Amino acid sequence: MTGRDLGYLRRCVELASEALCHGDEPFGSLLVDADGAVRFEDHNHVRGGDATRHPELAIARWAVEHLDAGQRAASTVYTSGEHCPMCAAAHAWVGLGRVVYAASSAQLTQWLHEWGAPPPPVAALPITAVAPGVRVDGPVPELTEQMRALYEKAFRP
């Protein structure tokens, strides 16, 4: 984990906060190329009822349309929360590179349990359980409290 990585993750947390301000779930993500340029950024858009509108899935779709296989493999996806199984599979299928996340699925699952919130409808698996060949870094302790606070606003009953 580098200072540069932390900077990108801080932007993901900002995107997650923006999503929450728009009435959506607090998740935000970036696609960064091998030269360090942010090529795509997005946040969750599930409030309208389409639970598949995750930013990580949007990144995978965008990458296939705009980058060749080598560029995708050399890229890094930064995200506020660890990919769900759907997004982890999409990441692997399109051949994206490294994933760096601020908060893990295990952390979110633990917090939901503590708050008495219902669990998500899909199992909270680590990215590597779905996509074993993907290099993954996270969670990042420096961002734990910020992510916990965003999740609490969104999910605590």
Rank of each mutant, 00 (worst) to 15 (best):
Q110Y: 12
L96M: 09
V94Q: 09
R156P: 08
C12G: 08
L150A: 05
K153D: 05
T79Q: 06
T144S: 09
S80L: 11
A60R: 01
A106H: 08
H91D: 04
H66P: 15
P141F: 01
A60C: 09
Y151D: 15
P126A: 08
A154F: 04
P157G: 01
P141Y: 02
S104N: 02
V134L: 04
V94S: 03
E41C: 04
P26D: 02
L143F: 10
T128M: 06
E114F: 11
S105I: 09
A89F: 09
V64P: 07
L112S: 03
C12V: 04
A131L: 05
H91V: 08
R135S: 11
H54G: 13
A129I: 01
A124D: 13
G81Q: 11
T109Q: 11
D50W: 08
E65G: 14
H66K: 13
Q71D: 11
A89L: 11
L150I: 05
G97I: 07
A92L: 10
G97H: 08
E41S: 07
A51C: 14
R148C: 07
V99L: 05
S104H: 00
A131S: 06
T128S: 08
W93H: 15
M86K: 10
V64H: 02
A92W: 00
E25V: 14
L108N: 12
E65K: 11
P157W: 04
P118C: 03
E152R: 15
R72T: 11
H43I: 10
G70V: 05
W93N: 13
S105N: 15
A63K: 01
H66W: 12
P120F: 01
V136C: 07
R148N: 07
E65M: 13
L125N: 02
S105F: 10
A117Q: 06
P55L: 00
L31I: 04
G97E: 12
L143D: 04
A88K: 05
P119K: 08
A88Y: 00
P157L: 04
P26T: 07
I127Y: 01
V32A: 06
M147S: 09
D68Y: 10
P26R: 02
K153V: 14
G49E: 02
G3Y: 03
G48C: 11
E114Q: 15
Y101R: 01
E56S: 14
L31P: 08
D24N: 14
